[in-house]
Computed example of a mutant assay.
Amino acid sequence: MTLVRFDPFRELSTLQDRLNRIFADAYPRRYDDDLTQRGEWFPPVDIYENGSDEIVLKAELPGLRREDIDLRVENNTLTLRGERKRDTEIKQEQYHRVERSYGAFSRSFTLPSRIDTENVRAEFKEGVLSIKLPVKAEAKPRQIEVAIS
């Protein structure tokens, strides 16, 4: 007979998965009650370090123009706002299906204290906003030479 250890967290995780499946089947998502109708959406964002020099944030903003984007840095918080507007030439009753999200969005990111907020750069190209957040020079690791005496 083998000894099996009881892991309560694994059991809770399994229970949560089962409950999620039960409620997902009982209350399927309807397209007429979609987030697109309320105008709320959140553009997907990737955040990564580019070596030790800067942190890069890339946001997918297809269909937006540069004028539709508001980017601010205040109190070590980067805030990205904008609005994707519906095509005014197409009437609501002409749509067969609407899966893309429209309306205003706002995303905020707390920046680490090592970011030089005075030298943040942003570039918008082919529907992708790239924000480069440079690391302060004093926060970068540096090699200290040890003298032999």
Rank of each mutant, 00 (worst) to 15 (best):
G51T: 07
E54I: 06
I55A: 07
L57K: 07
K58F: 10
K58Y: 03
A59D: 08
E60H: 08
E60Y: 07
G63Q: 11
R65A: 13
R66H: 09
E67R: 12
E67G: 04
D68P: 04
I69L: 13
I69F: 05
I69H: 07
I69S: 06
D70Y: 06
V73F: 03
N75F: 00
N75Y: 00
N76Y: 03
N76S: 09
L78A: 02
L78H: 03
L78V: 00
L78F: 01
T79V: 06
T79R: 09
T79F: 01
R81Y: 02
G82W: 04
G82E: 04
E83P: 00
R84I: 08
K85E: 09
R86H: 12
R86A: 13
D87L: 14
D87P: 09
T88A: 15
I90V: 15
K91I: 05
Q92C: 00
E93A: 13
Q94L: 14
Y95E: 07
H96G: 15
H96Q: 15
V98M: 11
V98C: 07
V98R: 12
E99H: 13
R100D: 14
R100G: 13
R100C: 06
S101D: 08
S101A: 03
Y102S: 09
F105K: 03
F105T: 05
R107Q: 15
R107D: 03
R107E: 10
S108T: 05
S108K: 06
